[in-house]
Simulated scan of single mutants.
Amino acid sequence: MITKRNVHAPGHRRRPAPRGAALVCAAALAAAALLTGCGSDDGDDGAKTGAAGTPKAPTSASASAGGATLTEDQAERKELLPRAKVGYDKALDAAVAAVDKSEPVSVELKGTPDKPVWETEVATADGAAHTVDVDAVTGKADRARAESDEDADDKRKLADRLGKAEVSAQQAARTATGKTKGTVTSVELDDSDKAGALVWSVDVVTTKDWNKTTYDIDAASRKVVREHLDRD
């Protein structure tokens, strides 16, 4: 099939366009180019193309887009926990050894990444409480300090708690880590919100996301009576 084309006979020359018409065409082309360059100032094209008309890459809304961003508490755990070379159980052993005939009441990882420390509390059978700081790197216990603001009623209540606790701090911690695989950062003997039941409150941190899960373990039956996941 042959399409229609503007074919000139051999030897036939087209006459050149008048000079005035050429100038008009050049001016029209220049104006069109100017309008095209300015058109991106107000329209959507200005946000999508550069001066040369090439597409611009979209601006990222967050420097961590596509990855998890840690909360302040999670970041603190990530900084502190790996620096502790001594676990909660060894810290409790050191604290109990520092106070004759004492039993664990609480232990919690605190301090700074440069100086992590286990803050522990132990008490004797009469309810006399002592605070012992244990270096979380070396396992060395500082001198025990007797609770100066503890009165006779406080001692009686603490002695009563210790007498009723049939589950040890270590047993409660093992129950918690049996539910969530992680590192124990706190264990405390306390009354729960449910009818004043005696519980061991255990914090377990998972290093894959640095979340903390708190378990309340019944101090008599070793059953889990409460579980709370803290994503902050």
Rank of each mutant, 00 (worst) to 15 (best):
R143Y: 00
R145I: 03
T131R: 14
K140R: 10
V122I: 06
A128P: 01
S148Y: 10
G139I: 01
W118C: 06
R145M: 09
W118Y: 10
T124A: 09
W118M: 02
A129K: 14
A141E: 05
G127S: 12
E119L: 09
A129C: 06
T138F: 08
V134I: 07
V134G: 02
A141T: 06
T131A: 13
W118K: 02
D149C: 03
V122K: 09
S148I: 05
A125K: 15
T131E: 14
A146F: 09
V122T: 10
V122N: 11
D135E: 09
K115W: 09
V134D: 03
A129G: 13
H130A: 08
A128Q: 15
S148T: 12
E147G: 07
D133F: 02
P116Y: 07
R143H: 08
K115P: 02
D135K: 02
K140D: 13
E147R: 15
K140N: 10
T131G: 12
A128T: 15
R145Q: 15
E121Y: 01
H130T: 06
D126Y: 08
H130N: 13
E119R: 09
E119D: 14
R145K: 15
H130M: 00
A125P: 05
V122G: 08
D142T: 00
A123W: 08
R143K: 14
T120C: 14
D142Y: 01
E119A: 10
V117K: 08
G139V: 01
H130L: 01
E147Q: 13
H130K: 11
A141F: 02
G127M: 12
E121F: 00
H130Y: 14
A128I: 06
P116A: 13
T131S: 14
P116H: 11
D142V: 00
E121L: 07
R143M: 05
V137H: 02
W118F: 01
D135M: 05
T120F: 05
V132G: 08
V137T: 15
T131M: 05
V134L: 06
K115C: 01
V137L: 13
K115M: 13
G139K: 07
K140S: 12
A136D: 03
S148P: 07
V137R: 12
A123D: 11
D142M: 00
E121H: 00
A144P: 14
A146G: 13
A125H: 12
